[in-house]
């Protein structure tokens, strides 16, 4: 039974992922739609970051905020992505000790 649920979950996750691979084969988009699609990565990053980051530690939104600020500062200075990730983990770890 659980296997059936997993297969159902897999199908509804897979279809939205691969349908666009076909769509772009058959369609030429108007310029403004192309521009829209080009802006999607930045909008998606925004929506993925906030307000989700507030929930890193339940009931303690400041933990996520401080972790995020560290990430912003370090990546602004030009730190490598991996170092930014590790430093944020360390920050949250120390804050919750």
């Amino acid at each position: 039974m659980i296997i059936l649920i997993i297969i159902g979950m897999a199908i509804v996750t897979m279809v939205p992922r691969f349908v666009p691979a076909f769509i772009v084969n058959h369609m030429i988009f108007k310029d403004w739609i192309n521009n829209w699609l080009q802006s999607i990565p930045y909008a998606a990053l925004g929506a993925l970051i906030f307000p989700g980051v507030l929930l890193v530690k339940e009931d303690q939104p400041h933990i996520g905020i401080i972790g995020a600020l560290i990430a912003i500062i370090l990546s602004y200075i030009g730190f490598n992505i991996i170092l930014v990730v590790v430093a944020s983990i360390a920050t949250v770890y120390l804050l919750t000790m």
């Binding site: 970051i49 972790g67 912003i72 602004y76 992505i81 944020s88 770890y93």
Partner: peptide
């Protein structure tokens, strides 16, 4: 405690992708 702290990891990844683009 460590695994909980790692909850920030993917957010830090998103931030470190966004910030250089914004720069």
């Amino acid at each position: 405690q460590l695994s909980q702290s790692m909850g920030i990891a993917l957010y830090a990844l998103f931030i470190s992708l966004l910030v250089p683009a914004v720069k």
